[in-house]
Design a protein around this nucleic acid. Sequence first.
DNA 1: CAGTGGTCTAGACCACTGC
DNA 2: CAGTGGTCTAGACCACTGC
Lengths: 245, 245
Amino acid sequence: MARLNLTIDRSSPVPLYHQLVEGIEKAIYDGTLESGSRLDNEIELAAQLRVSRPTMRKALAHLVDSGLLVRKRGVGTQVVASQVRRQLELSSLFDDLQRTGGTPSTKVLQFEHSPADDATCEKLQLEPGSHVYAFTRLRSIDGKPLALMRNWVRDDITELDTAALTERGLYDILRDAGTNFRLAHQRVGAVTADNEQAERLGVAPGAALVTMDRTAVDDVGQCVETGSHVYRADSYSFEMTLVHR
Amino acid sequence: MARLNLTIDRSSPVPLYHQLVEGIEKAIYDGTLESGSRLDNEIELAAQLRVSRPTMRKALAHLVDSGLLVRKRGVGTQVVASQVRRQLELSSLFDDLQRTGGTPSTKVLQFEHSPADDATCEKLQLEPGSHVYAFTRLRSIDGKPLALMRNWVRDDITELDTAALTERGLYDILRDAGTNFRLAHQRVGAVTADNEQAERLGVAPGAALVTMDRTAVDDVGQCVETGSHVYRADSYSFEMTLVHR
DNA sequence: CAGTGGTCTAGACCACTGC
DNA sequence: CAGTGGTCTAGACCACTGC
């Protein structure tokens, strides 16, 4: 039962519970806390680290949610098996593409700013006839085509154009314009490539593609963006970790 | 700004915060709390419902996590747009298949209880040469083939056989045997059907299939099960909601 | 039975938001 | 500036687990 050896900085603007999370994460990843090992009980941990029990609990709950710890009443708190943890990785929200490591590039195949059809207005919760940005991008990694992405974005957040979308990711642009994303709903499926998709993505017609439809919501409950993407199945898959509450 | 009108039962074994969650969920779904409307601030809500502020906060945090509310410091708490909520649905852990509504049936195509290969031992974190259950099932809904599922399960939880797997879902059996699932790591992708898969699933060779590989962990950090599944893409997709913390 | 996490309270102080 | 959610404390009591 390894004793935690963290230093907490009370003058830091970083919340105590978050310092605890980071410290424990680090201890798990560098091996101080071994895979499968048990932690002291939360009351003792709180005393050792000189924080209140609720603060300690908040940190532990966060680590449970992110899949690093499992807890059981009457039993204790354990570090989850490393085999599983290794898969978790850093799969944070919306950075699917960066994760792969290569250099991404984007080509804007089509761009317009025009009245949205009814289905799009419904999805983005806009008045019928509202204008939206609609565009199609081809995303490549190290020059190799990976994804064909069609998106619709509300036009009252920031101005979009082909140049901006070529230079930067959509979420990057929207975040800079003050959007705080909170929720995304995704549907992932499969399809075979039609002739156009095959040509754009450099695969044979009939090759398997991963499809992803997404709608994203910001911190004031507003639908900001909806998109319909296809990815080459030979070089892309979605990873996710489900935590049972 | 709709006033919440819930009744809290302090003699109930159901935790207060959970009663609050259920009450607010109900108010959202039956329209008492309209899409996009603002709730009173958490201190007032706590006073109205005669609970402490931390308890109220715990309930609200849960609703934020499940995608029904969005909060912003200095601004307030709002109900998220109904278009998004409608998609969230009840996508709880591991009930992917039940969700579709039809009557599921299962045919066990292959079943063995034998020493696992090294890759499987690694995944399930077992000593090399340990025995595991390995089996392949065909899952149909209303008689229509939907999924071809290959699984490996540790053998020290409960006894498995073809009859049990034909009658009941794997997770159902394992839960009954005392397993409390906590985590699952999934990878979802796409592939085209080979001849055998096509025949089993009743599609043409080359048709698109959704692939899913999963490893599941219980509440003591142990890997219980790993599986590799393929689904007909024309009748199946994965839905998920990502919440940004 | 002792050990553990789970729930709940009543408060204090603070940081961010929007006018 | 008033209004809001975010952080933190120190405690009480309870329910489940495994021996």
